[in-house]
Design a protein around this nucleic acid. Structure first.
Length: 586
RNA sequence: GCGCCCGUAGCUCAGUUGGAUAGAGUACAGGCCUCCGAAGCCUGGGGUCGGUGGUUCGAAUCCACUCGGGCGCGCCA
């Protein structure tokens, strides 16, 4: 209907331009919006206001001229000028109610479209280091990314979800050493974990598995391990130097093969745990992309070489620097360290090159907001390599701050005293977690109230929406008990009996759904859908309290049952996109 | 110090490609089950949209300055 009115206005403008009453050079952007106030009709356009200045008309006079030039349309029964020059459109009630027939016909496809048909999109999200289980901060990125993917699929995109596995960096070595030391402890060695080590219980579990499968083959004398070791921080030293030395010693004593076994035990166990966790959370990935394979395939070398060939690299202090300042970055960045090792950034350049090489129309990275300073250098690299930077969108997600009993829950990764995503899911359930995470705009800091999320009460917005769905299901169940039936065809034939204002209001809300999905998808803003569904649930509950659906008059009964069935269909479709269940009973 | 994000009702937040009288939840006060699920509905009070100035038919929205909060400024990842 909205696009329909846009067409009508376009025709009117063309007609005026052909008549010469309006400057033919004007190319207005037609804006048609749904009105907030019923007195303003169903749809309104500010086109006359936008055009007036350049056309040299008074807004209201231009509006009148446009209305006079407007073609007739069966769906519209009144058009009027209001305020400073808005054009308000009043739609026939039959047209409004017809959406019910459309929804029941399209079923779970209602709200999907092909406006971005065939657009190949890649979304990379979470990509947490596999050095420990996912925590609640990662949960927001997971829920957000998965929902954005669903939304984009709903408008016709072909979406690949990808997890970039940082399996090559120093953090992984620190994990491997942590596992090894726990392993030695479990075999009664007197040796402490370094200040910088990973101390979570999961490290002990991995070590225990090593003991079970390999016995004592990785045992070395603690005195030999610690011999000539630079002191750790508590002993007055530098913890970074200490742990790097420890990593070096571990590789030396264990040899490459044994070190590899321990390293991979840590990596594989944790990655498997992360994958399970996400799968249980309803977050599915198409590709798990290993950072290590970039180096193995020499893609990192190639990326650096390519930058070098195009003159964007220089040498300083024994390292190779990328001149990112030439592309708007604050300072130049090292890609190859003086010890010959590539930086994480170098890998990331190679990774993004590979993303572009894979032919996506659009590449989306979802990062924690603490990485925002990293955005300019990645875009700089993409520009330097001659790729189209506008294909890449980097969406930032702010942290979620947990509250329990009104108190802020403290989190710390290294100390191991943090709330994992799994703990959160067990505590509040997947539905509430998915819903709460996307309830707020992603770049907004979010307070996550654990007590509210798990409360099975009227305070909880998840239940509010699910309850509306369950209520409809309950009504349909009641029919059988009363020996009545729901005849959808008869309902469609009697839609004109839905004359109550609650009924037209609800139908209007249902008609908005595809517009909401489209906007939420294009802007990557799932919270719009959340707010829409709440409002829809509210309108349904209001209607429910005001009117009986199961009435003796078969015409009205079937029409009303069609309306509430359509409402439940839309709620189900919307919750599906959010990854939240729509129970028939609760 | 520089850069990015944020500041809207007591609290949590929508609304920000400029549109009509700034909305919702929650909390608070009152009302609604002989009737399809009260996990619900209705009514009410509550605001200098952080502040000041500017741009125009029109500003919570755009610009400048300013105050307050968060984050980032590694040859870490």
């Amino acid at each position: 209907m909205k696009t329909n009115i846009e067409d009508l206005i376009n025709q009117a403008i063309n007609r005026l331009q052909q008549q010469g009453t309006l400057d033919a050079a004007l190319q207005p952007k037609i804006q048609v919006t749904r009105t907030r106030d019923v007195a303003h009709g169903d749809f309104a356009s500010n086109v006359a206001l936008m055009l007036a200045k350049n056309a040299g008309w008074q807004p209201r006079e231009l509006a009148q001229a446009l209305i006079d030039a407007l073609p007739d349309d069966d769906h519209i029964h009144k058009v009027e000028i209001a305020g400073p020059g808005f054009i308000n459109f009043f739609v026939h009630q039959q047209t409004t109610l017809d959406i019910i027939r459309i929804i029941l016909d399209r079923g779970d496809r209602y709200g999907t479209s092909e406006i971005r048909h065939g657009e190949k999109v890649q979304i990379e999200f979470v990509s947490a280091n596999p050095t420990g289980p996912l925590h609640v901060g990662h949960g927001r990125g997971a829920a957000y990314g998965a929902t954005v993917a669903s939304l984009m699929r709903a408008i016709g995109c072909e979406v690949d979800c990808e997890y970039y596995v940082n399996d090559a960096g120093r953090q992984m070595d620190i994990l491997a050493v942590s596992v090894w030391l726990r392993y030695l402890q479990q075999l009664d060695a007197n040796i402490a974990l370094p200040d910088n080590g990973y101390k979570g219980d999961y490290v002990r579990d991995i070590a225990a598995e090593l003991v079970r499968h390999h016995g004592g083959v990785f045992v070395h004398d603690p005195r030999l391990i610690m011999e000539d070791m630079p002191p750790d921080e508590p002993a007055g030293g530098d913890k970074e130097i200490h742990i790097d030395a420890l990593i070096h010693r571990a590789k030396q004593l264990l040899g490459a093969d044994c070190y590899r076994v321990i390293f991979e035990a840590g990596l594989d166990t944790i990655l498997a745990d992360i994958a399970d966790d996400l799968e249980e959370f309803g977050v599915h990935y198409d590709i798990w992309y290993s950072e290590q394979t970039l180096a193995d395939r020499h893609l990192v070398d190639q990326a650096v070489q390519q930058l070098q060939n195009s003159g964007h690299i220089y040498q300083k202090n024994g390292a190779l620097w990328f001149r990112s300042t030439a592309f708007g970055d604050e300072k130049d960045r090292v890609v190859i360290r003086d010890n010959g090792q590539a930086t994480y950034f170098a890998s990331d350049i190679a990774y993004h090159m590979d993303k572009f090489a894979r032919g996506f129309h659009r590449v989306i990275n979802i990062w924690g907001a603490d990485h925002h300073g990293y955005v300019p250098r990645v875009k700089a690299a993409i520009n330097a390599l001659g790729e189209d930077e506008t294909k890449l969108d980097i969406l930032l997600v702010q942290f979620a701050i947990l509250y329990r009993s009104g108190e802020r829950v403290q989190m710390s990764t290294r100390s191991g005293s943090f709330v994992t995503l799994r703990e959160l899911r067990n505590e509040v359930g997947n539905d509430a977690a998915r819903f709460f995470y996307v309830m707020r705009k992603s770049e907004q800091h979010m307070d996550f109230d654990l007590d509210l999320a798990k409360s099975q009460s009227n305070d909880n917005p998840v239940y509010y929406i699910q309850y509306a769905h369950a209520r409809v299901c309950s009504v349909i169940r009641q029919l059988a008990e009363k020996n009545l039936s729901h005849d959808i065809a008869a309902g469609n034939d009697n839609l004109e009996l839905l004359t109550e204002s609650h009924e037209t209001d609800l139908a209007v809300q249902l008609a908005k759904y595809p517009e909401v999905v489209e906007k939420a998808a294009i802007n990557a803003e799932p919270h719009l859908l959340v707010h829409y569904l709440r409002e829809l649930a509210n309108q349904f509950h209001t209607y429910y309290n005001a009117h009986q659906f199961i009435v003796d008059d078969a015409g009205i009964r079937n029409a009303r049952l069609n309306l509430i069935s359509a409402a439940s269909q839309v709620i189900r479709n919307g919750l599906e996109l959010l990854g939240v269940s729509a129970p028939e009973m609760m």
